[in-house]
Every structure is written in C-alpha cells, then in structure tokens.
Design a protein around this nucleic acid. Structure first.
Length: 240
DNA sequence: GCGACAG
DNA sequence: ATCTTGTCGC
C-alpha cells in the first residue's frame, strides 16, 4: 500500500518536472518520453514486489573444509554489454560462466544487436536487460550443465534511486540469484582510490554478495564481469 | 544558473 | 558506454 502510493507520487513528480518545450515536435517527444517513463516506473514498482533480498538458494559458499552432501557454489556467471564506437546503437551482449574451482571460463555466448531504447539514468534495465535475458534463456532452454548458480551483473542492484537497478531486474525476470557490481556511484563518493559498488540484486544478502565478489576478484572488477567485458569488446571488434 | 545523473 | 598516449611495474 505504501509502495503503490510512492509510485503514483513519482509519476506526478515527473509530469510536473517536465519543462515546457517551445516546439510542438519536442513537446510531443517529451510527452512520449514521459509516458514511456511512467510505464517503466510501474514495471519497476511491480517487479520490485517479487524481489528477495536475503539468501535464497540451495548451495553454499565454498570453504576449505569438506562439506557433506550439500551443493557447493561452483558456476558463477557474468554479463556485460559493449558498444560500437562508430554506431552507439550497436551493442554486443555477453554471458560468461566461470568455474570457481579452476577459475576458468567454461561457457561463453554473445549476441550483437541494435538497441532502440536510449539510456536514461534510472532505467538502464530497459535498454540492457532484454539481450542478457535472452542469452540466459537460451542456455536454460538447452538445460546446459554450466547454467550459473549465481549471476554478477555489470550495473547496480538495490543501489538505485528506486531500489531496483539492472541486477534486480534481471534477477527477478530470470529467477536467479544476482549481484550488482557498479564501477561508478550515482552520487559520487570519492573515499577510496577507485572503489567498486556491490549491491544486492535478487535472492541474496549483502553479506553473501560481498563474500562472493571478494573470492572472485583477481583484479578490481570480479572475474566473471571482467571476462564478459573483455570478450564482448573483443567480439565487437572482430565481428561487425 | 550550475552540477549530477548506473551503462 | 566510448574517445584517448604514454608510462610505470611485474
């Protein structure tokens, strides 16, 4: 009840924030964009109702002690998009899966697409999620044995103006535990040299999210995301 | 009026 | 996100 109230308030604010444009073209364009954003706010609000922000998985973190018959976290996925320098609407979405026991990439798939949705702060998911969800879907439908038990997303989770960033969006729609990894804060906070911003995506607690990111960080950015980033850039360079 | 604003 | 050169260090 509180949530729906909040949603309505925000719609109202956006409409009243819209400045009066001088030409009717931009008037129409602005109104179109506003109504689009109203839809998006409703989608975010509704998906947020399904969000789980605590540990909700059957596996457990790898430890050095030998565990019983419990499933151990082994396959961690990473997703990222790269963009063409010539045509900024051309993007390559990439999904990789790392085996934590060997630290090797055991799965890689990517897709080059033309994006029609612009990037708008706070609405990144509507631009980037579709390609990534498709890559996940393809893997799941094939019942691939390396399908990730957890997914790291290049973008924020709860660290978002409405508490529903790209990592949450993908997590809920794919029904997969996700962790958000941001490389810039929405509100700049230069406390460290170059921090990364870890936030809860879906079906995981912040403590677990941090622990898992830690154990996959060879460099600043956790390896699953770093590999997705490197490989998507590479594919865009060669192919198309 | 100026700066901020995930990727 | 992308543009952009060299440079310091393992």
């Amino acid at each position: 009840m509180k949530m729906s109230h909040l949603g309505v308030e925000k719609l109202w604010i956006i409409m009243n924030d819209a400045k009066e444009p001088s030409s009717s073209i931009s008037n129409f364009s602005n109104e179109f964009q506003s109504s689009q954003q109203m839809d998006w706010l409703r989608v975010q609000d509704s998906l947020k109702g399904k969000l789980i922000t605590e540990d909700d998985f059957k596996w457990r973190l790898p430890t050095r002690e030998k565990e019983g018959s419990c499933e151990i976290l082994k396959y961690v996925g990473g997703v990222d998009l790269s963009f063409s320098k010539d045509d900024s609407s051309i993007a390559c979405g990439t999904l990789v899966v790392l085996d934590l026991t060997t630290n090797k990439v055991v799965y890689e798939d990517s897709s080059i697409v033309r994006l029609h949705i612009p990037y708008l702060p706070g609405f990144l998911a509507f631009r980037e999620a579709p390609v990534l969800l498709e890559l996940l879907d393809k893997m799941k439908n094939n019942a691939h044995c390396f399908y990730p038990q957890l997914l790291m997303v290049d973008g924020n989770g709860l660290l978002h103006p409405r508490g529903f960033g790209l990592a949450c969006h993908i997590g809920v729609l794919a029904d997969l535990p996700t962790v958000g990894v941001g490389k810039n804060a929405m509100r700049s906070s230069e406390g460290s040299l170059k921090p990364i911003f870890i936030s809860v995506g879906h079906r995981i607690s912040l403590a677990s999210a941090i622990a898992i990111v830690r154990m996959t960080c060879k460099f600043r950015v956790p390896e699953p995301i770093r590999q997705a980033d490197i490989r998507s850039r590479e594919r865009l360079r060669n192919n198309q």
